[in-house]
Design a binder for these strands. Structure first.
Lengths: 380, 380
DNA sequence: CCTCGGTGCACAATCGATGTTGCAAACATT
DNA sequence: AATGTTTGCAACATCGATTGTGCACCGAGG
């Protein structure tokens, strides 16, 4: 993960670790096992527990402990391999040093988020706790309840299903929190600008259809479909809107059936695209795929088709999948800036921001060999 | 994640949650914010704190509290939205209810492991803590030190770099632990049988080379290369051995330069394969890719080549990557059984197993259209 | 010599839950 | 009625760190 990962809240001094593989060279290694406390250290240093506490947690200057005493204590603690009991600290201070990240599941996007999150948390000398809630409202709620029992210091919600209720729950327990990739009216949020992103991606797909000579709207197959996601969720809704914007601007009309957005489920995606294929007797000429999991699901079906058929369909995926650019057919992708999302979220949290929603633009990764709207070939 | 996620250790009774969005309908919602304790509940129930404690944590029968009293207390706690302070419990009992998983990074394989791990932990009413240590010995050590401060109940190490030292560290603090995907002599371990797996995968690659008419060994390019991973790590070592076994059995000899295994780094993989290509004036006819990250790195270079060149190389990847089967060229894959790995690890831990190493066989996913050793076409 | 403002530290009260111990009352036994 | 034996619960010490308070001691100033 990151740097030294000192869990301790205050000063680096506290981390007096390095127990070493076993400093007792004596054959019958008497593990000085069970925990030493500040009282033990105090005894060995000829000081009081409170002095030891102050020395070790870095508050010794404020508490007017002499530098000499503090350093002596720190040295002893280090050599004894003392390790603080964080439950005791948390109980006393009612701050646990735990920061939670709730994600719907562990896919590529959320894993990236998790990685960045962990790094940031540990850079702050706190401990990241990452939990997935499977897009289930009840689990989200229960998880927060449980985190409260841990005196959690802050919670980051990613793609929460019921943000408002979660926010109320956190507020009632005074837990600082932010939402990522899913806006909430009641708390600060950082989201990808899905609507704009979807508009751009759709435009890209449409443009590549045009370049392939498709006359959009001429037949039912000569159009673009939106596949996957859950239209009850804002992110999907925004993407559908961006998609619609672009389609309207380019084509002038959009049939309801062109948007298939009931679920993020992988198998459902496989089935949807297969059904579409059967119904139309072939792939549509354009396809907007709503996320990497939907992408994977769709690919299960697409992989069964001959290449020639795939070549007839221009695709775009609202997510970045590195291997996606190496498929047997071109796919445009929108990459969410996960690092920026998380870092902005930290900023909002630390600034005790009011309930604003920050937008982060995703990046377009055009399919290799595709052309930009002006017709120049992209080079990546 | 999973089911109800009651963090509480003992009985379900303890979970008296469901604060509800706000049961105080009164306009000026006076958040009954700051925590209620068992003392408050005790006062309201006309009982003592110890009785409340017993009632709530399910030990009331043992403590000979009458059912009537217990149920009254539980009802009050529920209606007050009482939430236990787990730090206090952990301090008192010196069991935190936290179970940690240390992974090198968040890639697809480790994320799958993490998901299974989380589910299992939560099924046991404990709290999963997942931390990545970036394959850094020092970070591993420090992380364990910190986890000790949390009175962690158990640690799962996945792909640890220095297992022996970690095990000693855990032993000296009496922390139950297991190793996954990386054996340790001092503690129970569950690993993928890399050697056998690599042998099978290599055989598959060689056989597909043969079917393509390659006469192995005839020219420097008419052979198979091993790419990526860190030969200082047992998993890579075992894969190299399995690779060597198969090559020796099939070809009779193996040049040292056929094995490139210095690092898992993605960029290094890109560079390695590019260098190989330059040196030999083309791709080797066979390529064993050591992990999904190496795969991704290699693909960055491979994607720049014309398809005709890719078609000349038989590839195998020791990891499963769903999109890998949909590339413009066939790739055999070995899938590690992540779920089984984790579940076995739990079993070993719960049985307080001695330091044994359990092997789990990976599954071969042959490239679509490839043939098994007897020459029959695979059908998937 | 006596007070006064720093220093430098020890004491003791917390934080909230657990669990051992002990003590009433209720009931049973002879 | 006197003596066990349950039943049902309250008191209290405890886990280990933090922190408000107080009190010695020191040198300086009057």
């Amino acid at each position: 993960m990151l740097q030294t990962f000192v869990l301790f809240l205050h000063s680096v001094n506290t981390s007096v670790g390095a127990v070493g593989p076993n400093e007792s060279g004596c054959g019958n290694a008497v593990k000085k096992n069970q925990k030493e406390t500040i009282y033990d250290i105090a005894a060995k240093a000829g000081a009081s527990a409170s002095t030891v506490s102050a020395a070790l947690n870095g508050t010794w200057e404020k508490r007017r402990i002499s530098r000499a005493t503090a350093e002596r204590i720190i040295a002893i603690a280090r050599e004894q391999g003392y390790s603080i009991n964080l439950q005791a600290r948390a109980l006393r201070t009612s701050r646990s040093g735990l920061v939670a990240l709730l994600v719907p599941e562990y896919n590529r996007f959320f894993s990236s988020i998790a990685q960045t999150f962990s790094d940031e948390v540990r850079a702050r000398n706190q401990c990241p706790v990452i939990i997935s809630t499977g897009r289930d409202t009840q689990k989200e709620h229960d998880t927060v309840t449980d985190l409260m029992s841990w005196s959690i210091d802050a919670i980051f919600f990613v793609g929460a299903v019921a943000p408002d209720e979660l926010s109320r729950q956190c507020q009632s327990a005074d837990i600082p929190h932010v939402f990522v990739d899913q806006p909430c009216d009641l708390a600060p949020s950082v989201v990808t600008d899905s609507r704009t992103g979807a508009r751009i991606l759709t435009r890209e797909i449409l443009s590549s259809m045009t370049h392939r000579g498709v006359r959009i709207g001429e037949s039912p197959r000569d159009t673009i479909y939106f596949l996957g996601g859950d239209r009850r969720l804002p992110s999907t809704r925004n993407r559908v809107e961006g998609f619609s914007d672009a389609v309207y601007a380019h084509v002038g009309h959009l049939e309801p059936e062109q948007v298939i957005a009931e679920t993020y489920d992988l198998d459902a995606a496989t089935e949807s695209i297969a059904a579409l294929y059967r119904k139309m007797g072939g792939l549509p000429r354009g396809l907007f795929i709503n996320s990497d999991s939907v992408f994977e699901g769709a690919l299960r079906f697409l992989a069964t088709l001959p290449e020639a058929e795939l070549a007839e369909c221009s695709m775009g995926c609202f997510d970045y999948e590195p291997l996606g650019q190496l498929l047997r057919f071109p796919v445009h992708m929108m990459r969410q800036r996960h690092k920026m999302l998380v870092q902005r979220a930290f900023t909002l949290l630390e600034d005790k921001s009011p309930p604003v929603t920050e937008m982060v633009q995703p990046e377009l990764y055009p399919a290799p060999g595709s052309r930009d709207p002006e017709g120049r070939a992209f080079s990546r």
